[in-house]
Design a protein around this nucleic acid. Structure first.
Length: 817
RNA sequence: GCCGGGAUGGCGGAACUGGUAGACGCGCCGGACUCAAAAUCCGGUUUUGGCAACAAAGUGGGAGUUCGAUUCUCCCUCCCGGCACCA
């Protein structure tokens, strides 16, 4: 062992050992308790960034800790390899997306190995490989036959200059990022998966996901957005077909003063034919982006259509408007507006001078004026004839009963969740396995013709998908009638690949089936770790896919991820690090300079996992310095002959103190890593212990024995975080068993016990003194000692003591005067 | 706009169940070692007053509950993430 800490050499030796021993390659072992530790696989963007290092280190720490708990740990790694950046690189540098992607994967795999993560590389999965995506194509064709997928028109961002569909990210201030042209909404046919069929289960199961963070579950609940309401029909003047609307507030039905329909609604289109002004507004509505955030923040605009609906109870004429915030894709594409009791309706009514009436009053009897602000809460119905005096629930039932009786409406459960559009008009993705035949329509590609392989050797220009220019790709024969037919050139949303990769890690080498019985050994994932930015989309799609796999008989698990840890973003200059923003920090420079352990240590020390971490280069040095001190401390111990085994009966005061600190630290770090996932406080506790060891100067055999025990503990406790240096130092401390096969240390309760406690004394909640008491002192004795403290007496003075709160467990006394 | 989260010394953060605010680290200041520098080691470091003991103030802003609030409740400000085609 070198006298100087040389991370380059230390880390190379540890890596060589793990590789030689194949420490992290695991096979199914029914006799052992499995622990599937997974982190969201990366997009191979070129090089690792700090966000990757953070999340992978968190996961590796948990995996190594669980391994030391005796679990049979699987930690795989792979590549979410389809996506837009590869196309962008192709446009900018003329490299085919496949070539660029594979090159990136090779480089990043090297970086991951250099960081010492304990992955089972034999299970590596790459989603752009046909042997991977063929199984999602296969599943898609099965779902097609089941009716779980369907095709319908939906809206995309259309760049009229580049003649291409843009991602929301590629639309900047309403314009195409390359052409600068105003983006338009365009309707095109696309494939959808029926996630709404599972809305109820996706919602209800959240209650059983005890290992998930509450905020993530809340976000998913709100996203699914279950609401109970009534679908009502309003007759329209001179129209045969009534206008159907969904409302969750039937109690406000008598407060409807206008109705609004989407620009694409048939009634609006009809009115536009006669009125050029309406036609112009509808045209304008199309010149907006598809993103919801853009729709919600844009100025609310509308125009009367010149026709009226008939109020189903009063029979009054209700004017019909077209409005840009009503979307054809949501519900019925029409809504009843109650400006007195809805925020958006109120703003629209105020802007256009539409009447606002009050039909609900507060339950507490207070007066409100709906002309000044809408009253949105539930209350008591007023100004509504037969419904007057009813509560929300009573009015709901009354309306539902009335309308169901005469067939003009019914109770309905509505979801905000929409079906998942999986079609992308892009090249670099998995081909959607469908063939269009003029006679037979859309036909799924038969099993024996799968996979539909994406040609990798293409020229990519950025104008449309190259697949559309490749007859050798799109020319096909209809599997049903054998006539010439055309293959689908759209590819899957990349969220499809990331919705089932976790199951495929169990059996990545199976070329005959999507999943096999090994899946049932490893799934579900015990611990899933990833960025909070995936709280909704990826995690909801993955949960949905798990249910599809289950219902196909491919898996027994209802939910894919038992425990979830969402790590905060690594920010630079206050924003998410991303290639687009050009604010990435390359971890490679730090690894080259300080080694992987320093980078891992710093990342875990800088902040708790759930918080956003603002990157700063300072502090990495401190982590390096600590490891050097750690190295030197173990060396100092080796300069002494190994101490004898600790005999607790023979220890003096300071020796007992150090030993107590050792065991308190073991207890704290076990809790911090095993339960709280606060690696930063675990590291701080170990730093304190090392500081205590370095201050401790006692060359006696007993003294050396407690130091040896402390150093053993430090090496074991830090080993999940800094595995390379720990591997080497463990050997240096004279242990024959390599550290990777060691168990996690146990805290000795007896060694942790204290015989004297320091009690804090407050007067009126302010700290005024501290007293030392025996650990077994009773409340009376503690109170007397507290009252006797000089500074405490000064503050109590002549005042009458009204109350004394004695909390021995909290080590606190509060005297109230 | 809607949903979720965050704000504590010069900086990253700690305080886990309502009970000592600032652990640990960075930075900075002083000292040791050195011809000198780097590295390393020792000491100090919330602000204000004080030689000190100690006192006062202090956890984004405002109110409230409590013997006691960084922690709970209400209102507000700013920042971050998501909003269905970034992954």
């Amino acid at each position: 062992m070198e006298s100087r800490y040389d991370p380059e050499k230390v880390e190379a030796r540890a890596r060589a050992f793990w590789e030689r021993e194949r420490c992290f390659e695991v096979k199914e072992d029914p006799d052992r308790e499995k622990f599937y530790c997974l982190t969201m696989f990366p997009y191979p963007s070129g090089q690792l960034h700090m966000g990757h290092v953070r999340v992978f280190t968190i996961s590796d720490v948990i995996a190594r800790y669980q391994r030391m708990q005796g679990k049979h740990v699987l930690q795989p790694m792979g590549w979410d390899a389809f996506g837009m950046p590869a196309e962008n690189a192709a446009i900018q540098r003329g490299i085919p997306p496949a070539k660029w992607t594979y090159k990136n994967i090779d480089y990043m795999r090297g970086q991951l190995k250099r960081l010492g993560y304990g992955y089972d590389w034999s299970r590596e999965v790459t989603t752009c490989r046909p042997e991977y995506y063929r199984w999602e194509q296969w599943l898609f064709t099965r779902l097609f036959k089941k009716g779980m997928v369907y095709r319908k028109n939906s809206i995309v961002n259309w760049d009229p200059v580049d003649q291409t569909v843009l991602a929301n990210e590629q639309v900047i201030d309403g314009r195409g990022w390359r052409s600068d042209a105003l983006v338009e909404r365009r309707e095109i046919p696309q494939w959808f998966m029926k996630i709404t069929a599972y809305a109820e289960e996706l919602l209800n199961n959240l209650d059983r996901l005890d290992g998930w963070p509450e905020p993530v579950k809340t976000m998913q609940r709100n996203w699914i957005g279950r609401s109970e309401g009534i679908e009502l029909e309003f007759a329209v003047e001179n129209e045969d077909v009534p206008l159907s609307v969904f409302t969750t507030r039937p109690d406000t039905l008598m407060g409807v003063t206008y109705m609004a329909v989407a620009a694409e609604h048939p009634l609006a289109v009809k009115a536009a034919a006669k009125n050029p002004k309406i036609a112009a507004l509808i045209e304008e509505c199309k010149k907006t982006q598809a993103a919801e955030a853009a729709l919600e923040t844009m100025e609310k605009k509308g125009m009367p259509l010149g026709i009226s609906a008939i109020h189903p109870i009063s029979g009054d004429a209700v004017p019909l408007w077209v409005a840009n915030f009503v979307l054809m894709g949501y519900g019925t594409g029409a809504l009843m507006a109650v400006p007195g009791h809805d925020h958006r309706d109120w703003e629209f009514a105020t802007k256009y001078g539409l009447p606002i009436t009050q039909v609900v009053e507060p339950l507490d009897g207070s007066t409100i004026d709906v002309q000044i602000a809408p009253f949105i809460e539930y209350g008591r119905v007023v100004n509504s004839g037969d419904m007057d005096g009813m509560t929300y629930a009573e009015a709901f039932d009354w309306i539902a009963g009335k309308f169901e009786a005469d067939g003009r409406g019914q109770r309905r459960i509505n979801y905000r969740l929409r079906d998942w559009g999986v079609s992308r008009q892009r090249y670099w993705g998995a081909p959607i396995p469908i063939i269009y035949c003029d006679v037979c329509g859309a036909v799924p590609v038969p099993d024996d013709q799968l996979p539909v392989v994406l040609p990798e050797d293409v020229e990519f220009t950025g104008v449309g998908s190259p697949l559309k220019q490749m007859p050798e790709f799109y020319q096909a024969t209809c599997p049903e009638c054998g006539k010439a037919a055309k293959r689908e050139t759209d590819t899957f949303d990349t969220f499809v690949e990331s919705s089932w990769y976790f199951a495929r890690y169990a059996c990545p080498d199976n070329h005959a089936a999507m999943l096999d019985k090994r899946e049932s050994y490893w799934m579900p994932v015990n611990q899933y770790t990833g960025g909070i930015e995936h709280a909704i989309l990826h995690l909801l799609y993955a949960r949905f896919f798990q249910k599809l796999l289950r219902d196909e008989g491919l898996s027994a698990a209802d939910e894919p991820f038992t425990n979830l840890l969402t790590q905060g973003m690594v920010l630079k200059d206050g924003a998410k690090m991303s290639k687009n923003k050009g604010n990435t920090v390359d971890p490679q420079l730090l690894i080259d300079r300080y080694g992987a352990d320093t980078v891992r240590l710093f990342m875990m020390f800088a902040a708790p996992p759930e918080l956003a971490l603002e990157w700063s280069d300072e502090g990495v040095q401190g982590a390096f310095r600590f490891l050097k001190r750690f190295w030197t401390a173990v060396q100092g111990q080796m300069a002494n002959p190994l101490g004898e085994k600790v005999d607790p009966a023979l220890l003096d005061g300071p020796q007992k103190d150090l030993r107590r600190k050792t065991h308190q630290t073991i207890a704290k770090v076990s809790d911090d890593i095993g339960r709280r996932y606060t690696f930063n406080t675990a590291i701080a506790a170990v730093m304190e212990l090392l500081n205590a060891v370095n201050r401790f100067d006692d060359p006696s055999p007993a003294g050396r024995s407690v130091v040896a025990e402390a150093l053993d503990a430090i090496v074991l406790l830090l080993s999940p975080i800094v595995p390379h240096i720990a591997h080497e130092l463990w050997e240096s401390l004279g242990h024959r068993t390599p550290l990777v096969y060691e168990r996690w240390p146990l805290a000795d309760k007896a060694a942790m016990a204290e015989d004297v406690l320091e009690i804090v004394v407050q007067v009126n909640g302010k700290l005024r003194g501290r007293v030392l008491v025996a650990a077994d002192a009773d409340r009376e004795a503690i109170e007397q000692l507290a009252l006797a403290d000089e500074n405490v007496r000064r503050f109590v003075a002549d005042n009458t003591i009204r109350k004394v709160i004695v909390l021995p467990a909290r080590r606190l006394v509060n005297i109230v005067v």
